[in-house]
């Protein structure tokens, strides 16, 4: 086994120094080394989207990025996005619409939604469904999630008008 490598990165506005095995993926690093267990693992082969996090501003699959690749990078997880308040309105819309059941896909889903809403101010229902097709949810059937995203879009556009 290859010896651990030293990495330095920002995670949710905190400086982190760590020694990680080069084969450790980012999601395992966040969960096992930093205790940030809000980043979930559903498939560990890049399909389900449960491990979605932000890396230098872009969303990535935490299971397809190695921790060593995040050396020098800025990582944001669901814990950080919740504490900063960036997605507070989106979370409230999910709560009001019961857009989650078991909640396992939800952190990744919320981060993926926020990415869409940063790119497009008024996405259609079809666009929302298309954008979220990389995030699997087995509980809701997606309808409530799409509703919650639409409600957030309306509220944000109303607030900006």
């Amino acid at each position: 086994m290859i010896a651990p490598v030293s990495i330095t990165l920002m995670v949710n506005d905190e400086h982190v120094n760590a020694h990680v095995s080069p084969r450790t993926h980012l999601a395992d690093f966040l969960r096992d080394h930093l205790g940030l267990t809000g980043t979930h693992l559903g498939c560990e082969h890049g399909v389900c989207g449960a491990c979605t996090v932000r890396l230098d501003g872009d969303i990535v699959r935490g299971c397809l990025v190695l921790a060593v690749q995040a050396d020098g990078a800025v990582v944001e997880t669901i814990e950080g996005l919740s504490d900063s308040g960036e997605i507070a309105d989106l979370q409230e819309a999910f709560r009001n619409r019961n857009a989650l059941q078991c909640g396992y896909c939800t952190p990744g889903m919320l981060i993926a939604v926020q990415e869409l809403l940063r790119q497009q101010s008024n996405p259609s229902r079809e666009t929302i469904r298309e954008h979220l097709s990389g995030n699997y949810c087995r509980c809701t059937g997606y309808h409530a999630i799409v509703d919650a995203v639409e409600a957030t879009v309306r509220a944000r556009n109303g607030a900006n008008a």
Partner: peptide, 10 residues
């Protein structure tokens, strides 16, 4: 729900 949405479920 709030706990689950913040990634603070267990």
């Amino acid at each position: 729900l709030t706990r689950l949405m913040q990634g603070r479920g267990q």
